[in-house]
């Protein structure tokens, strides 16, 4: 990934900033600029997701993508967020053997990868099992 693209995506990658349609209340992540339901009637505004959801599907990766060699085995999951959007993310701080569909997870800020020993470090969201849920607010 190029440095400029990473930089542009910092708000979404760090803070799960998506968009919400003011017309139909649908939340999108990654952010969309047009609501597919409302089209021209849609009013999309930036919207910060709370970062909680549950695993709807996952797989354990043993043959890693470039740059993830030391992370195997790791869990890639589709997480359905409370607000509706489904996103693909790594599940960290977990034992891959004990991950299940339906597990509640929360967002955490982690290194995603580094370009090289002297390159940029890409930070962003991963999810981890909810340990001791703090109350609302």
């Amino acid at each position: 990934m190029a440095v400029p693209r990473f930089w542009r995506e910092i708000p979404n990658r760090y803070n799960l900033i998506g968009t919400k349609c003011g017309n139909c209340n649908t939340v999108f992540f990654p952010p969309r600029s047009v609501c597919p339901k409302c089209r021209r009637m849609g009013k999309l505004e930036p919207y910060k997701l709370r970062g909680r959801g549950k695993i709807v599907s996952y797989c354990t990766v043993h043959v890693p993508a470039d740059g993830f060699e030391d992370a195997v085995p790791y869990v890639l999951a589709i997480v359905e967020l409370e607000e509706g959007p489904r996103i693909t993310a790594q599940i960290t701080d977990c034992n891959p053997d004990s991950v299940k569909i339906g597990d509640e997870v929360e967002v955490t800020f982690r290194q995603i990868r580094e370009e090289s020993q002297d390159g940029l470090i890409y930070y962003g969201y991963k999810f981890k099992p909810v340990s001791n849920p703090p109350s609302e607010g």
Binding site: F109, Q111, I112, G137
Partner: peptide, 23 residues
């Protein structure tokens, strides 16, 4: 620290908690 943690990720988690606590 875990394989994806460093001083920045630790600082961010602590800082986010401090903001939530301060409200």
């Amino acid at each position: 620290p875990g394989p994806d943690e460093d001083t920045a990720t630790i600082a961010v988690e602590a800082a986010r908690a401090a903001v939530r606590r301060a409200n």
